[in-house]
């Protein structure tokens, strides 16, 4: 099963664009159907949109702030989970 998994992944990767190729679909300005691609847009517009030079920060806190909110909720969930699991049980 592990071999199957490996084979599948290797098969997929050799068809991937070469690593570091700036023309890879993820890095281009427009995708094949002509829509803007997020990565290039962030590089070009992050400073204009949020006046912060660090693009990662801008994405984290602004463009995709919901992911970050989700991240906070994950941590909160983990905390509540530990509370639920580790509190001494009645029969202990």
């Amino acid at each position: 099963m592990l071999l199957l998994f490996t084979g599948l992944l290797v098969y997929a990767t050799i068809h991937l664009p070469a690593r570091g190729d700036p023309e890879a679909p993820m890095h281009r300005k427009e995708n094949v159907v002509g829509d803007p691609v997020a990565g290039a847009y962030f590089i070009g517009n992050a400073y204009r949109d949020a006046a912060t030079p660090n693009m990662v920060t801008v994405i984290l806190a602004d463009y995709r702030s919901v992911d970050t909110l989700g991240e906070v909720i994950v941590v909160f969930t983990a905390g509540v989970c530990c509370l639920l699991i580790l509190r001494r049980r009645m029969y202990d």
């Binding site: 890095h27 990565g39 693009m55 994405i59 995709r64 992911d67 970050t68």
Partner: peptide, 10 residues
């Protein structure tokens, strides 16, 4: 590309 980096922080 800044996007994957951000996502990976999460």
């Amino acid at each position: 590309n800044p996007l994957p980096h951000t996502l990976m922080l999460t």
